[in-house]
Design a protein around this nucleic acid. Structure first.
Lengths: 264, 264
DNA sequence: GCCCGCCGTTCCGTTAAACGAAACGCATGG
DNA sequence: CCATGCGTTTCGTTTAACGGAACGGCGGGC
C-alpha cells in the first residue's frame, strides 16, 4: 500500500501558494484527480505541504461536508456537498457550451484552428480555443500570462477597438517587443495600423509573432455593439497563406455574431 | 438590473463562518447556483459578507483561474479551472462508488454494457461505465473530449431535457455531423425527436452513431425532479436488437431512480 | 454641464486565523 | 519489547485575513 500519487503538472505548486484558500483548493484538486480514496500521507507526498496543515485543511472540509472518510477507513473521499457543488458548476456552464459549440462548428467547416480571446490586463488571453485536426500545431504559451497584443491579430483588433483614452494609455506602455522581422515595433506605425483595422473591420497577423504563422481576427460584439472579444483563425502559412485566411472572413463574421449573442 | 440573488437554504450562513477557506467556498457555491454571471454587489446581498472581503476572495479566484470575468463586464463567471475541477469531482465521487455498485448490479442482471453520462460543454461525457462480459466491445473515444450528442441515445435524452433556452441555443449550433445513414442531420427532425423523447421518457439510438450498435437511455433525476444525467444500455445489435433493449427500460428506470437518489 | 449616488477598488491599522516543529497515541510487526 | 509509520494534538510564532473608510469612475437626473 505504498502507492505514489502523482501531482498533475497543471496544478501549480501548491506548497508555494501563499493563500490558505488556494492551497486548500489545490489539495482538493489533487485528491479529486486521484479517482479513489486518498490518505493524508499520500497527499503529503503529492503536495509537499506539512502534515498539520494538511490535516487541518482536510478535517475542515470534512466537517463542512465537502469531504468524507472512506467507510471503515481513514482515507478521504468526496463528500456530498462537493459532489453537489460540482454538479451545479457543470450545469451553469451552458453559455460556455454554446460558445464552444459555435467554435467547433466553425473549425470543422474551415479546418483551421480558431480561438476566442479577450484583452486582460493589457495582454491577450484565450477564452476558448479549438484546434484543427492537423499534425502541425503550435502551442501558445497559455497558462498564467497571456500573449503580447501588438503582434497578433486578435490583440491588435482588441487594441484598435478600445475607447481612445485606454487605447492611448496602453499604447504608451506596451513594450512592443520584437519577435520576428515583421513585428510592428514603432508606436506610430502601430497606431495607424489600428486605425486601419477599425475602418476595415478585421485584423491580420502576417508572421508578426511567429514565423510561418498567420492569423485573421474579427470582432465579437455585444448586443449593444461594443467589441467584447475577438474571434480569430490561425494557421501555418504553408497551409493557410494570408490570402486564404482572408477568404474566411465572412464565415468568421457569422460565427462572431452568433458568439456575441451568447453574452449578456 | 436590480435582481436579487437568493441564498439557497442549504448553504449554511456564510458570514458566520470563521474559516476564510469555507467562506470562499460558500461564495463559490452561491455564485455557481445563480447559473449566470454575478456581480460583487449581488454577492454582498446574498452572502452578507463585507465588500472588501468578497472582492479579495473573488479576485483571488480570478487570478487562479477558478473564476473569470464576463467579457465586457465586471460580473464573475465560472473559469476554466473550476469547470475542469467539477468534472473531476463528478468522475471520482464518493457516491460514485455507490453508483458504480448500482451500475454493476444492473449490468450483471441484463448482461449488457451500461453507462452513466452528463452533458458538458455541449458534448456527452461518461461519469461511469460498466462493460458487459462479452468479447465484442466498442471503445468510445474517452479521454479528453466527449461524444456528439445528436446521435447517441444519452445525448439526445439530455438535450431533450435541457431548459428551453439552452436547448434552442445548442440545437441551432450543433454541427449534426453524419456518422451513419441513420444519423439525424436535420434540425427539424432532431427537434421533433427530442419532443418525442420528453413525452415517452426515454431515448434510443438505432445505429445512428456506429453501425451495428444500438442504445436506449432513460433520465436520471435529482430529488427535485431535474434531469441530471442519463443512464443507458448499449450493445451490438447482433446480440441486442433494439426491441430487446427496449424491454430493459423498466429495469433501467429502477436503476436510474436508485442512482438519482445518490445525488444531493 | 454639474451633481449625486452606486459600485468596484484600494488603503491600512487591527486581529485572529493559519502555520508547522515537536510531541503524542496507537496501531503493526519484527 | 522496541522500532516504525501514520494520524492526531499542542502551542508559541507569524502572517494573512479582516473590514471600516476613503477613493474613483461611470451613469442618471436635473
Amino acid at each position: 500500500m505504498n502507492r505514489v500519487l502523482s501531482l498533475p503538472a497543471e496544478i501549480p505548486e501548491i506548497a508555494g501558494e501563499t493563500s490558505s484558500t488556494l492551497k486548500a483548493f489545490g489539495v482538493l484538486e489533487v485528491l479529486v484527480r486521484a479517482g479513489r480514496a486518498v490518505t493524508l500521507s499520500e497527499l503529503m507526498q503529492a503536495t509537499d505541504l506539512p502534515k498539520p496543515t494538511l490535516h487541518r485543511t482536510l478535517t475542515l472540509f470534512e466537517e463542512a461536508g465537502f469531504l468524507a472518510r472512506e467507510p471503515g477507513g481513514r482515507a478521504f473521499i468526496i463528500g456530498e456537498r462537493l459532489s453537489r457543488f460540482a454538479l451545479d458548476v457543470l450545469r451553469s456552464d451552458a453559455a460556455a457550451a454554446q460558445r464552444r459549440t459555435i467554435l467547433r462548428a466553425l473549425v470543422s467547416e474551415i479546418t483551421e484552428t480558431c480561438n476566442l480571446a479577450v484583452l486582460k490586463k493589457g495582454t491577450l488571453v484565450y477564452l476558448d480555443r479549438v484546434e484543427a485536426p492537423w499534425p502541425l500545431r503550435l502551442h501558445m504559451a497559455e497558462g498564467g500570462g497571456g500573449l503580447p497584443p501588438h503582434c497578433c491579430a486578435s490583440g491588435k483588433l482588441l487594441l484598435a477597438h478600445l475607447p481612445p483614452p485606454e487605447r492611448q494609455g496602453l499604447l504608451g506602455l506596451l513594450p512592443l517587443e520584437r519577435f520576428t522581422e515583421r513585428t510592428i515595433t514603432d508606436r506610430a506605425v502601430l497606431e495607424s495600423e489600428l486605425d486601419r483595422i477599425v475602418s476595415v473591420g478585421y485584423a491580420v497577423d502576417n508572421e508578426e509573432y511567429v514565423l510561418g504563422v498567420a492569423c485573421v481576427a474579427v470582432p465579437v460584439r455585444s448586443r449593444d455593439g461594443d467589441v467584447i472579444a475577438s474571434l480569430a483563425v490561425q494557421g501555418a502559412t504553408a497551409r493557410l497563406p494570408l490570402m486564404r485566411a482572408i477568404e474566411f472572413i465572412p464565415r468568421l463574421r457569422a460565427a462572431a455574431a452568433e458568439i456575441g449573442s451568447t453574452f449578456g
